[in-house]
Design a protein around this nucleic acid. Sequence first.
DNA 1: CTATTTGCAAACCCTTTGCAAAAAT
DNA 2: ATTTTTGCAAAGGGTTTGCAAATAG
Lengths: 137, 137
Amino acid sequence: MSDFVHLLKTKDLKATPQRICVLRELEKKNHPTIEHLYDALRKENPSMSLATVYKNIATLKEKGIVIEVNISDGKMHYDIYSHPHVHLVCQNCGVIQDIDYDDALVAYQHSLETHKGIKVGRLDLIATIESCSFCKK
Amino acid sequence: MSDFVHLLKTKDLKATPQRICVLRELEKKNHPTIEHLYDALRKENPSMSLATVYKNIATLKEKGIVIEVNISDGKMHYDIYSHPHVHLVCQNCGVIQDIDYDDALVAYQHSLETHKGIKVGRLDLIATIESCSFCKK
DNA sequence: CTATTTGCAAACCCTTTGCAAAAAT
DNA sequence: ATTTTTGCAAAGGGTTTGCAAATAG
């Protein structure tokens, strides 16, 4: 049994081919939009519907399997959520990269909690850079 | 001459009453949505058009006077941009607060730049908290 | 067999656009 | 007088919904 089938079962979701394809496409780490997913998946399965992509993403989001990445380009991007991480967005080519938390970010979260007397549930951090190794500018 | 009129002139924008009202409403620090702005401004000026709010926000954003705050609630929120800051969003009541950068966040940005060999242009950071002093939960 | 999911189309926002009239400089 | 901005209505684009048929477990 593939990992995705198992993952879906543990979350009480049916392992439909459409759903597994969505996860497989997300796994490629391109941080695709709904439209990207739809275009890619329609090539394998021409009857795949746009609404199915939307519904599956909504379901996977509710279950915490997928997170939304909002880089303010007018469309939502999606990412499989494995552990907390930061997104690095290249202003030049649009590539989104995942960056693991480091000690300095953990320290910042602690400083926030200490100084503001709050408990941070989640940090959504998008760091914009002018160019990256993919566009080499 | 009011500060806003002066600000607009330095950015080569005409100081229309509608534009000044948008800025005044943004100044209240409620991080309003377009709809909030429209509803509030229509009370003072019933002929104020929704398209005018959109156009002014777009113009003010282009000039760097206003920034978009995306808390993933389906609508964009807006904020006057004075200096870099973080947004704290209460999951319970939806209130958005501005938090100034502190040494720990500056340290994190430096660690990113040092370890990844990148130059960060902007950090968009949204910290989600479960409850806040406004909803007292 | 039962509950969930799919696919289609229509409906639903929120946002943008075109254009003539009004206002700012 | 010139250029920008406003207001209206229509169009646009991404997302959601309703429902019958298909599928997973």
